[in-house]
Every structure is written in C-alpha cells, then in structure tokens.
Design a protein around this nucleic acid. Structure first.
Length: 581
RNA sequence: GGUCCCGUGGUGAAGUUUGGAGUUCACGCCGGCCUGUCAAGCCGGAGGUCGCGGGUUCAAAUCCCGUCGGGACCGCCA
C-alpha cells in the first residue's frame, strides 16, 4: 500500500516515485492552484504540494502517490527532518475523512486537560511525543527480555486468577461463576508463583508481569502496572543485584543510547543517615549532618537528651532563594516539619559577620554555636535547619525537607541508580498486636550475622533485602527468601503468628517448601517508572497507552460501569445501595 | 479519610481580588481571497448552562454555602 514512511525521505530520494500513507497534520492554502499538505505517520511528517482543489483536511487519512523533489532554493525547512524535500506531482486518495480533532494533534496538546486527552487517547497517542514514549517502552522491554534470556532466565507466564491473601495491598476481586460467593484475586505481584517455580527447579525465572493493586492512584502509581519480576535459585545478594543490574543497564542503554555508570550501592542505614530517606536522590547535596555529640551537654531544652540531632545546610551559593527565606517561609518549614512528625524545627541563619541569627541562638553556648557552624561547614548567608528527635524521625523529617528544598524534577541531570541494601528485617510495631512488623514481607531472609539476635534484639536485625532507586524514585525491591522451614517458623512466631495459624494463612505457600526448596532470591522493579524517567516524563500515565485517571476511571471507555442485574445474578452477587454521604 | 490547587465556546488562556449586558486574546472550525508556505497570511462568520445546585443582591463568571469533576500530595501501596 505504501513504499516509504513519511519521516524517512531525504534529498537522496529525489526523483523517486513514492507512495505514502498517513494523516493530514496541516494544510496551507496559497490560492486557486497551490496548497501544501503536511502528511504525518509515526515516523514523522513530509510536505506534499498539491492543487488547492484537493479536499483533504486535518486528520483525514490519505494515500499520496508522488515524486520526491528537492525543494526550490530558499524554501527548505531546517526545522524539519524531511525539510529538504517535498512530494510533487501528487495523486491524493482519501482513505477516510475525519471529524475535526478535539485538540491539536501536536505538542500543544501537552497543555490540554488530561481528561480530554484520555477521552480521545487514540488522537493523543498519534502525537510524536506519545509515539516516542510507546516505542521507547517497547525497546526497554525488548532489551530486558534480551538481557534476561541471555543470563539463562526462563520467561514463564503465571496465573492472573489466584486466591485472595489478606496480606499486603488491597486486591481486585473476581467473582466465581461456578462457585457463587467465592472469589479469585488478581495478582498484586507473582510473588507466590515465582517462589513455587524455584521449588519446581526452574532455576531462573523472569516475567514482564502485569500487577494489580486496588490502592489510591498517584503520579507514579496506577491500578495496573508492569514489573520485571525475577527469581533465582542458589544465589546470594550479589548474584541477584548483578543479574537485575544487567537488565536495568541494558534497558537504560537501549533507551538513551549510552550505558549508565555502574549502579552504586549504599546500606539502608547510610541512606537514612546521609539522605534521610530509603530512596535517596543522589543528584544533589544537602546531606544530613550529625550534631548529636555537639549538643550532648546543652542547656537548650529542645535539644537536651534528644536521642538524635541532625541538621542540613541550605547553601546561599546554590539555593539563594531558600537560604534567604523570610519569617513566613521559615514558619511554613517549621509547620511542615511538625506535620511530618517532628516536635519542631530549629532554624539558624548565618549573618554576614558570621554571627548566628535564630530564635534559639541565646540558648546555645558560644562553644556550641562555633561547633555547629564548623560541623555544618556554614558560611555567611547559609540557612541551617536542625531537628532533634528519635533517630528515625530526625532522619525522615530532614530528608523530606531536603527534597522539598532542593530536589530537581526526576528526569533532570544525571541518572543516579543506587542499590539500597541491608534493609531492617522489622519496621516499627503493629499497634494491635504489639509485635514487630516485617519491613518487606515475612518470607525475607534475615542477615546471617544477625540471626542470633532475632529474639533478643529484633529491631537491629538486618534483612537480605534491597531496593533499586533511581533519582529518588523507588524502582523496585527484592530479597533472599527464607527456604528453611524452621527459620520461617521462628520468624512467624516472632511476628506473633503461631505455627497452626501460619499453616492456615500461608499453607498453600509453605507446604511446597517441605518438598525441597532451594535457597533462592529475587527482585521486581517497575517498568512504568523506569520508562517514565528514561522518557523524561514526570508521570507514568505518559508512558502507559491507556491509563486511568486518579479516580480510577477511564474517560474513553467509561469504565468502571454498572452491569446488568442478570449478569450479577449469575455470579451470585447483589449490590448494596451507595452509602449516603 | 485528609490537605492544597484547578473548572470560562472544540482547545488554551484573561476576566473573579474590588459584583454592573457572555466581555476579551490566541488556536481550531465554516466560507471567501491568496502561486512557496511550513503551528502561512488577509477578510468574514458560526460556536457559551462561565462544571452543577442553592443563597445574598436591583444585579453574580465574580461574594457565600453545598455538590460534582480533574490534578498534586498525606494516609494507603507487606
């Protein structure tokens, strides 16, 4: 039907007779016998010169047979890849007419309300930016498949219909027709299946897997998302990180044309200490500075006896606006710190003469003030923010303030991939049971050096668990799993789950482990997030062909929709009236 | 469940603070003119429940209350 793509024509094609197909991107008329048509397909646009009597309007689908000609001197368009040529002597066949589009099918649609874009997603996706994103995503997927297959991973498809499990994210339920009142759940992740595949001797499994979680949507979260899911037998942490790192590197290389630097590695503890976050953004400074020792004997009540005191320096040189914040802005920062859980926020400004300006300056000794300035490396004009609280609160609050004050958009600057390793096995305490809560999931292997402290000092036990972080976005996480039934029982007991309860809740999962489970571990990372960052997008909806709005609705199809009572009846379901508000 | 921002012809915006006739700008659409444009240019035209409902007022896009929709974030996402 066609001989060439619009975007590929160059001066070297001059003289060739070509047949092109595409959409009319633009029409410019110049009198009775001259009009220019910009013909667009996924590869780009090219200009065709036709008689003005040709009726072909915006977004009509046409097939044009014509001759490629070098443009007359002075009419070339350097802005356009095909700007040196045009198609002349054209026969235009209208394959389909089109209603005028709801919005311009070009970059101006970037500013259009997203509901409108999604209602006409087929037009939105026709745009260069969206076609580029779709194709980037396809090349990332292809690179991942190549890298995984090349390392001996076997691609296995796992069920979408599975039993509901109470742990973790809220599930989407699918009613059973054959057993009214019973339900399948859609997978939050293929976690269960991939571990069973290890027991089954698959050795290395991977899947580009759809996962579904019925949790509130965000810029980086959709109900449905896609993960590279992988699991390996007879491996340690380094083996897993190397295998997944190779896939990420291959994907990034395919997307950007050049290999990213080696993925860095940092312990969870260090990430918290230095960046106040378990997903540290390494692209900028403002690292947390340890100050607890400086104020060990302070008279200042807010600092005295605080388990952890840390600060960040907002340098006037890099962030003049933030560093010179007025009283209103500083009050807002203090409110923010309180909202994040801190008891308060101490701000200190370094004056031009080196003196300290702060509501609490008078409570600090001369020694303390000098030590503070020295520790922070502060110079005149800088703003210092100090938090005194429990260690985790101090770190988290300052980490958030650090991001608030200085974090660039996620796609800006260099790509800083980092493994965050040695996550704690337990995080906090369950308010109801008083028992520790698993940081990752209860099947996560404790660090071998720490296992003997499982009962005596559980909160200090590290896990063989790790996250992959890119520019402050958590891409994914994984762990070495517990394959020893006895150790699993120990962990469950510590979580307050008795043996019989564990069998009841996780039996279908634990029983196979009595049949020879190999040591194994794995990882899963979000392809939507990776592609978004590589595409320079702030929002994963831009790299998903047909995403949902924040409400979970799809304005194009109208989903979710009510269904006929008969359809519900077949499933044994009756709906309740919507609760009054 | 919560906080903040937004809603004005098909699209994007201004107008809202300080109430005074659906007013304005750009794009698009329809028609006319135009032989080298390129997000062409010129002329004319059509196109509106100012998200919706209520209230205050002589008068509401504008003020008040409610509600719906969209977005960012918190909670949530083992």
């Amino acid at each position: 039907m066609r001989t060439h793509l619009c975007g590929e024509l160059r001066e070297a094609h001059a003289g060739s007779r070509v047949v092109l197909c595409g959409w009319i991107a633009r029409r410019r008329e110049h009198g009775e016998h001259l009009a220019f048509l910009d013909l667009r397909d996924h590869s780009g646009t090219v200009q065709a010169v036709v008689d003005a009597s040709v009726d072909a309007r915006s977004e009509w689908v046409v097939r044009i047979e014509g001759t490629v000609a070098a443009r007359p001197e002075g009419t070339r368009n350097d802005q356009l890849a095909t700007g040196a040529v045009e198609i002349v002597d054209c026969a235009v066949e209208v394959l389909n007419e089109a209603e005028p589009p709801a919005f311009p099918v070009d970059s101006r649609a970037d500013a259009v309300d997203e509901t409108v874009r999604l209602r006409h997603r087929y037009l939105d996706l026709r745009r260069e930016r969206m076609q580029r994103n779709l194709r980037l995503r396809a090349s990332v997927n292809a690179a991942i498949r190549g890298a995984m297959a090349g390392q001996g991973f076997v691609e296995v498809e796992t069920p979408m219909l599975m039993p509901s499990t109470p742990e973790g994210a809220r599930e989407f339920l699918v009613p059973s027709r054959k057993e009214p009142g019973a339900f399948y759940a859609l997978p939050q992740s293929p976690q269960l299946w991939k571990q069973l595949l290890m027991v089954a001797g698959t050795d290395r499994y991977y899947q580009i897997a759809r996962c579904l979680r019925d949790e509130d949507l965000r810029a980086d979260r959709q109900y449905e998302f896609t993960q590279l899911d992988a699991e390996m037998s007879f491996v340690d942490v380094d083996d897993v990180l190397a295998a997944i790192g190779a896939a990420v590197t291959a994907a990034a290389t395919a997307a950007t044309g050049s290999a990213p630097p080696p993925i860095e590695r940092i312990t969870w503890r260090e990430a918290m200490e230095r960046f106040g976050s378990d997903k540290p953004d390494l692209r900028f400074g403002l690292e947390l500075v340890e100050l607890t020792g400086i104020f060990s004997a302070t008279e200042f009540k807010a600092f005295a006896g605080a388990p952890s005191i840390k600060g960040i320096r907002v340098p006037a040189a890099d962030l003049p606006e933030a560093a010179s914040a007025g009283r209103g802005r500083l009050d807002a920062l203090t409110d923010r710190a309180k909202q994040l859980g801190a008891k308060g926020l101490v701000w200190v400004k370094v004056a031009a003469d080196g003196g300290l300006e702060s509501p609490v300056a008078k409570f600090l000794s001369e020694t303390e003030r000098a030590a503070l300035v020295a520790a922070m490396g502060a110079v005149p004009g800088d703003l210092l923010l100090v938090v005194a609280d429990e260690w985790s609160t101090t770190c988290e609050v300052l980490g958030q303030l650090r991001n608030d004050l200085a974090r660039p958009p996620v796609h800006e600057g260099p790509y800083r991939y980092v493994w965050v390793v040695e996550f704690p096995l337990f995080v906090g305490v369950n308010a109801q049971t008083g028992r520790p809560q698993p940081g990752h999931h209860p099947f996560c292997h404790p660090h071998p050096d720490d296992i003997d402290r499982l009962e005596s000092d559980p909160m200090s036990v590290r896990a063989l668990a790790y996250d992959l972080v890119l520019n402050g976005w958590e891409l994914g996480s994984g762990s070495i799993r517990i394959h020893e039934p006895e150790l699993q029982r120990r962990v469950f007991r510590h979580l307050g789950i008795a043996d019989d309860e564990a069998d009841r809740r996780f039996g279908f999962f634990l029983q196979p482990f009595r049949h020879g489970a190999p040591p194994h571990g794995g990882f899963a990372f979000g392809i939507d997030r990776l592609v978004a960052i590589l595409a320079g997008e702030e929002n994963i909806r831009e790299v998903i062909a047909f995403p949902k709005l924040q409400s979970g609705a799809d304005p194009m199809t109208g989903a979710p929709t009510p269904v006929a009572d008969a359809q519900l009846g077949e499933l044994g379901i009756r709906t309740l009236p919507r609760p009054a508000r």
